[in-house]
């Protein structure tokens, strides 16, 4: 059952990306082009998504001790804002601004098989592999700071 709902969630997410325009890099790049051909549409995507997710998550975790078909809600519990988080976000943002794709839209657009997507996708997977095999470079600095 949970497998079926994982597939269904992915499908709904994909339709959301297509309908909203997120899966179209032209629209993403114009959203980011605040000082040029600005298209503010995508602010409505994030607004709409949070308007459902915030009350949804709050209701779930308050009214239930576990998900319907699994044993626990797997929620991140870290609260520290570390260099790794921010440096990752900077690199991600630069890549997003260059190509107009973030991971979800890249997956959704993959079957349409535009040349740019077919190049972007394997390099995205390679980047994820690299990140999994990169130690936290900020740790030695922090250790030094506490000594």
């Amino acid at each position: 059952m949970k497998q079926f709902f994982a597939l269904l969630s992915g499908l709904i997410f994909g339709f959301g990306l297509i309908l909203s325009g997120m899966a179209n890099p032209a629209k993403v790049l114009n959203f980011l082009d605040v000082f040029g051909t600005w298209d503010p549409s995508l602010a409505f995507v994030m607004g709409g998504a949070i308007a459902v997710t915030a009350p949804g998550f709050a209701w779930l975790t308050r009214s239930r001790s576990r998900p319907f078909f699994d044993t626990e809600f797997r929620l991140p519990n870290r609260t520290d804002i570390d260099p790794r988080l921010l440096s990752g976000a900077v690199l991600f943002g630069i890549g997003w601004g260059l190509g107009g794709f973030c991971p979800g839209p890249a997956l959704t657009a993959l079957p349409i098989a535009a040349t740019g997507t077919l190049v972007f996708f394997p390099f995205m997977l390679a980047g994820m592999w690299l990140a999994r095999h990169t130690p936290d470079l900020s740790l030695p600095f922090r250790k030094g700071a506490t000594q």
Partner: peptide, 20 residues
Amino acid sequence: SLGGGLLIGASAVLLMATNG
């Protein structure tokens, strides 16, 4: 875009509700 955003939110809540 708002409609698409609502679908994305619904998907996130569905995955959390069923799979955590």
